[in-house]
C-alpha cells in the first residue's frame, strides 16, 4: 500500500546528513522501506550531500597513503564476493515488521509481547537506543488519546489499524512527522487496534491535567 503521509523535507535532509537522532532515524528508516517517494527525496538530499562533500578544498593524497591503499587491494580476493541476499521483501507481509525495527522488537507483529500501561493502551519500550525514545504502541479501536503537543520532534508510523486527527487519516505505512507547533488528539479507527511505532527526542506535552498527572506513570 502506498503511504499518503510522508516524512517532512527537513527530516529527509537530516536523515541524509546523518544528523537525525537515533530513535527518529529508526522510524524514518521504517517508512523509507515502505515509501518509494520518500526514497526518491532522500536521493535528492544525498545528491546535495555529495556535492557539498566534493566542494571542499583538499590536498593531493600522500604517496604512502596511496601505497597503503594498493596494499589493501592486494589483500582482497580476486573475485568479487556475491551480494548478500536481500532481507527486505518486496511483497508486503502484514505480520512482518519493517527491517529497522528488527533489532529492537523482533520480526513478527503477532509475536510481540505487550505491556499494558493504561486502559486501552499497550506499549513495548526499546531499551538502550540512545538519542531519544523508541516505542511500539497498541491502542484499542475507537480510543481517543488526550490532547497533546510535543516538546521536540516526534515521528510515528502506523503498522496496523489507523487513526484520525486534525491532520487527516493515518493508515499502515503513513508517518506523522510532528514538532512542537502541532497539537493534536488522535482517535483510533473502529475495528482493529492501531499499532504504531513512535520515536521522540523530548517528552510529550499533554494539555489536560489528568493526562499530565498520569504522564510519569505512562512514561510518555
Amino acid at each position: 500500500m502506498t503511504p499518503n503521509h510522508h516524512l517532512d523535507d527537513v527530516t529527509v535532509l537530516s536523515y541524509s546528513a546523518g544528523a537525525l537522532p537515533a530513535a527518529l532515524a529508526v522510524v524514518a528508516s521504517a517508512h523509507l522501506e515502505r515509501c518509494a517517494a520518500c526514497r526518491a527525496r532522500l536521493l535528492d538530499a544525498d545528491c546535495i550531500g555529495g556535492v557539498l562533500m566534493l566542494q571542499q578544498r583538499v590536498d593531493t593524497p600522500a604517496e604512502d597513503a596511496r601505497a597503503a591503499m594498493l596494499a589493501l587491494l592486494d589483500a582482497e580476493p580476486a573475485i568479487e564476493p556475491p551480494a548478500p541476499p536481500a532481507d527486505i521483501v518486496q511483497e508486503p507481509d502484514s505480520d512482518r515488521l519493517p527491517s529497522s525495527l528488527h533489532p529492537w522488537f523482533g520480526h513478527s507483529l503477532r509475536a510481540l509481547r505487550w505491556r499494558r500501561v493504561a486502559p486501552g493502551v499497550q506499549r513495548i519500550l526499546a531499551s538502550g537506543i540512545g538519542g531519544g525514545d523508541l516505542m511500539l504502541l497498541r491502542i484499542a479501536p475507537g480510543s481517543k488519546l488526550p490532547l497533546h503537543s510535543h516538546g521536540g520532534n516526534e515521528l510515528t508510523m502506523i503498522l496496523d489499524g489507523a487513526y484520525d486527527d486534525m491532520l487527516g487519516h493515518f493508515g499502515p505505512g503513513d508517518v506523522a512527522d510532528l514538532d512542537g507547533e502541532i497539537t493534536h488528539q488522535p482517535v483510533t479507527s473502529p475495528g482493529v487496534p492501531c499499532i504504531c511505532v513512535a520515536a521522540t527526542d523530548a517528552p510529550l506535552k499533554f494539555s489536560g491535567w489528568v493526562a499530565r498527572a498520569l504522564q510519569p506513570l505512562l512514561g510518555f
Binding site: 546523518g18 536521493l43 544525498d46 550531500g49 555529495g50 562533500m53 587491494l73 582482497e76 568479487e80
Partner: peptide
C-alpha cells in the same frame, strides 16, 4: 574498499559516484 568490493552495485543512472561515496562515508 567498499567501492572496490561493491562496484557492481553502482548504477550511474541512479546516482553519481560522488553521491554514492557520500552515502558510503556517511
Amino acid at each position: 574498499l567498499t567501492l572496490w568490493r561493491k562496484a557492481s552495485m553502482f548504477n550511474p543512472a541512479r546516482a553519481s559516484l560522488g553521491t554514492w561515496l557520500y552515502r558510503v562515508a556517511r
